[in-house]
Nucleic acid binder design. Structure first.
Length: 284
DNA sequence: CATTTCACCTGGTGGC
DNA sequence: TGCCACCAGGTGAAAT
């Protein structure tokens, strides 16, 4: 489900609705997969903290949390307590939803945070590829995604990412330690708009092609954010609202359908283990 | 080190 | 209606 535009939409929605609210209690499912931090430590760490703000880094949602406020803590213990972060990665099918306590519990709900306002923040993830992590900032450094942000990267820095690399440009776009946040949809769509074939070796693209790609990626991501992301099957934001960028897709999941520019049927190949869609006429 | 492949999961779809 | 193969927004460990 979630690449940069979807994650940005969800993070913004949660930020607007939950900033200033306080976590009273946390419940986690018994499946171990989603928990990068053991769930007992996560539940204990989250309780009593105020949600200061929520933002996106790469494909991660980062909740900035204040120090815990508990009624029976001594002044000395409180002074040692520090700010913290709750980091949510949605994997393929993860959702973060703001609900009321009496909303029905969706199947595959793995986390429920009850809030001082009476609402709940829920994490739902059927395939369990998502990950939840808790960091106390006096013990662990603040979260930082390894790759560059595609929305702000400069021309020179972008070109340098791919220099000397033999792998396919599509595979390079998906590598999160190069660019953070690009996934299968926006890799295919940006390569189409840049008129570059996904199998081309990343290090063999000309300077002009790389700049076309950077600008295409930027425009595609910005427009997708404006439209609330792509809802391919069941993606919804924190308010349960679908995105509309799937209506703008030119190649992704359009195998056999005519290219919007030239009418040639869109082709699908397997690259880096992912379905890869392109126009054999428009992309060179 | 760079690159490729595969395992991790459930659910939806379409063919027979 | 059922069964089966295949496909799906991602990543990180293991193999090459």
């Amino acid at each position: 489900m979630p690449e940069l535009p979807e994650v940005e939409t969800i993070a913004n929605g949660v930020n607007q609705r939950l900033s200033g609210d306080r976590i009273i209690d946390a419940w986690f499912s018994s499946y171990p997969q989603p928990f990068k931090t053991p769930r007992a430590r996560q539940a204990k760490g989250l309780s009593g903290r105020t949600i200061l703000s929520v933002h996106r880094t790469g494909k991660h949602i980062v909740c900035e949390l204040g120090p815990p406020e508990s009624s029976n803590a001594s002044a000395a213990a409180a002074s040692l307590k520090s700010a913290a972060q709750w980091i949510v990665h949605l994997g393929m099918t993860g959702r973060l939803l703001v609900t009321t306590p009496d909303d029905p519990i969706a199947p595959h709900t793995h986390a429920r945070l009850s809030l001082a306002s009476g609402r709940e923040l829920r994490f739902v993830d059927p395939r369990r590829f998502g990950r939840l992590e808790f960091r106390e900032l006096h013990r662990t450094p603040a979260f930082d995604a390894p790759g560059s942000e595609p929305l702000t990267i400069a021309e020179n820095e972008f070109a340098a990412l791919f220099r000397g690399r033999k792998l396919a440009i599509k595979a390079a776009l998906l590598n999160q330690s190069l660019l953070a946040g690009v996934g299968n949809i926006y890799a295919d769509e940006s390569l189409f708009h840049a008129r570059i074939r996904p199998r081309r070796a990343a290090g063999r693209l000309s300077r002009a092609e790389l700049e076309r790609l950077r600008q295409a990626l930027l425009r595609v991501l910005q427009q997708a954010i404006r439209l609330g992301g792509s809802s391919v099957s069941d993606y919804v934001d924190a308010n349960g609202v679908r995105g509309f960028f799937q209506l703008e897709h030119c190649v992704y999941l359009r195998t056999g359908e005519p290219c919007r520019l030239c009418g040639t049927p869109i082709r699908r190949i397997l690259l880096a283990g992912r379905g890869t869609h392109f126009c054999p006429t428009c992309q060179k």
